[in-house]
Computed example of a mutant assay.
Amino acid sequence: MKAARPRVLIVDDSIVARAVLRRIIEGGGRCDVVEAGDARGALDLLARERVDVILLDIEMPGQSGLAALPEILRAGAGARVLIVSSTSAPGAEASLRALALGAADTLVKPSAGVLAGQFAQALEERVARLTDDIAPSVRPSDAPVAIGPQRDPPRIVAIGASTGGIHALGRFFGTLDASCDAPILITQHLPASFMPYFAAQVSAMARRPCLVAEDRMRVRHGHVYVAPGDAHLVCAPMTDGHVLRLDRAKSASGCMPSVDPMFDSVARVFGADAFAVVLSGMGRDGAIGAERIVATGGALIAQDQESSVVWGMPGAVVAAGLARAALPPEAIGRALNQRFGGRR
């Protein structure tokens, strides 16, 4: 029997925008498209029909996409939500809130007159990746998972994430003890304009200060640092500590910022005292740097397939045999607590 084609639901109050988005998606020849003009219409449709991906506008009259998102996620029963927003301050902040609530990804929405070109290509790629990854998850074993020998607490924690990563970060920090006071570096694939809002969001989730990294910024215990959207976040030694550096060289993965340079620098500077995490994300960014983490004796844990929105990045390090364990984000936080002698 021929497999059913993936179905995409477009939720946008603009008739013109819906028509253009439909043309782009149907032009790829892979997906069927249905539409709704507002959040209520989307919920009514989801009560009757199955879809795989929901393209959701958050700036709609009446009930906004953001306000409706939790109900849409429940009604979608596993459908991935792709948020479309402007690059304005309200749009960036709302998109990050949506990602924290469980949206899979965000895509910057241009003005109505330029819904083509690079935007069309980016939309096709996002929808293709989200639908390509739809597959039955591998059921995790109920057996205890060994995370390696107990050693002194790590001196640095480095986290790489992309699609689905913000929601995973919230779950990770939800179980992380205050006793885990090592500096935390995060590379999350996001536009540069989103980073100040992302840092504020991480600070609230982590219950500790979070800063957008700047060149030569000193690394302090109990702080979180996020890569800016236009540079790789790396670290370097000083005579009396460590400092952050920003690197804009082309990365092997082509991502900016990229997880690979961050992991590579952490392995080089901290060696066996590093603790690295790969959360949900498309592609293979982080896999090369993960090799360095493991080669220098550091610990690396990946998010498991079942809890990931997209198991590209964590799946790559698991497939390469680099991850000591594949766990849900909450369990990764508890595993790190163990290294600091906190709750399990």
Score class of each variant (00 low, 15 high):
residue 85 S to G: 02
residue 70 P to W: 05
residue 103 A to P: 03
residue 76 G to V: 02
residue 62 G to H: 08
residue 76 G to E: 07
residue 55 L to K: 11
residue 87 T to P: 05
residue 66 L to I: 13
residue 46 L to G: 05
residue 94 A to M: 14
residue 76 G to N: 05
residue 82 L to N: 08
residue 87 T to Y: 11
residue 85 S to Y: 05
residue 45 L to A: 08
residue 82 L to G: 06
residue 35 E to L: 13
residue 69 L to P: 01
residue 64 S to N: 03
residue 93 E to Y: 08
residue 73 L to K: 06
residue 103 A to I: 02
residue 93 E to C: 09
residue 84 V to I: 13
residue 58 I to A: 04
residue 74 R to Y: 10
residue 58 I to M: 10
residue 76 G to A: 03
residue 100 A to Q: 14
residue 42 A to H: 05
residue 65 G to I: 00
residue 55 L to M: 13
residue 91 G to D: 03
residue 67 A to V: 07
residue 94 A to C: 08
residue 65 G to F: 00
residue 90 P to M: 02
residue 88 S to N: 12
residue 42 A to R: 06
residue 42 A to K: 08
residue 73 L to N: 03
residue 69 L to S: 00
residue 99 L to F: 04
residue 46 L to P: 08
residue 29 G to E: 07
residue 41 G to K: 13
residue 34 V to C: 15
residue 34 V to Q: 14
residue 47 A to C: 10
residue 75 A to Q: 11
residue 99 L to T: 03
residue 34 V to E: 14
residue 54 I to L: 02
residue 101 L to I: 06
residue 48 R to L: 15
residue 44 D to T: 09
residue 51 V to G: 01
residue 92 A to Q: 15
residue 76 G to L: 03
residue 61 P to R: 10
residue 62 G to T: 07
residue 54 I to E: 02
residue 72 I to N: 08
residue 47 A to P: 09
residue 34 V to S: 14
residue 72 I to P: 11
residue 62 G to L: 06
residue 49 E to P: 02
residue 38 D to V: 00
residue 53 V to H: 00
residue 69 L to E: 01
residue 48 R to K: 14
residue 66 L to Q: 12
residue 43 L to K: 08
residue 44 D to R: 10
residue 34 V to A: 14
residue 80 R to P: 03
residue 40 R to D: 15
residue 63 Q to Y: 00
residue 42 A to F: 09
residue 89 A to C: 06
residue 99 L to M: 02
residue 30 R to S: 11
residue 55 L to D: 07
residue 43 L to F: 00
residue 89 A to E: 15
residue 96 L to A: 01
residue 63 Q to W: 04
residue 84 V to H: 13
residue 76 G to M: 01
residue 57 D to N: 07
residue 48 R to C: 09
residue 50 R to I: 04
residue 70 P to G: 02
residue 81 V to K: 05
residue 48 R to T: 10
residue 89 A to T: 14
residue 44 D to H: 09
residue 94 A to V: 12
residue 56 L to T: 02
residue 68 A to M: 02
residue 46 L to H: 08
residue 91 G to T: 07
residue 86 S to V: 02
residue 47 A to I: 00
residue 102 G to W: 10
residue 58 I to T: 12
residue 84 V to P: 08
residue 101 L to W: 10
residue 81 V to F: 02
residue 89 A to N: 14
residue 95 S to N: 11
residue 41 G to Q: 09
residue 67 A to H: 12
residue 28 G to Q: 00
residue 60 M to C: 03
residue 86 S to G: 15
residue 56 L to C: 04
residue 36 A to Y: 09
residue 70 P to R: 05
residue 66 L to P: 10
residue 84 V to L: 14
residue 66 L to E: 11
residue 59 E to S: 15
residue 48 R to A: 11
residue 55 L to Y: 12
residue 40 R to H: 12
residue 50 R to M: 00
residue 38 D to C: 06
residue 102 G to R: 09
residue 29 G to W: 03
residue 35 E to I: 12
residue 52 D to N: 10
residue 92 A to N: 14
residue 63 Q to E: 15
residue 88 S to V: 06
residue 56 L to E: 03
residue 80 R to W: 08
residue 90 P to Y: 06
residue 65 G to M: 00
residue 39 A to L: 01
residue 64 S to Y: 00
residue 43 L to Y: 09
residue 28 G to H: 04
residue 47 A to K: 13
residue 77 A to E: 15
residue 103 A to D: 01
residue 95 S to D: 11
residue 51 V to N: 02
residue 98 A to C: 10
residue 57 D to G: 05
residue 59 E to L: 14
residue 97 R to W: 01
residue 87 T to G: 14
residue 62 G to I: 06
residue 64 S to C: 04
residue 79 A to R: 09
residue 52 D to K: 03
residue 36 A to V: 04
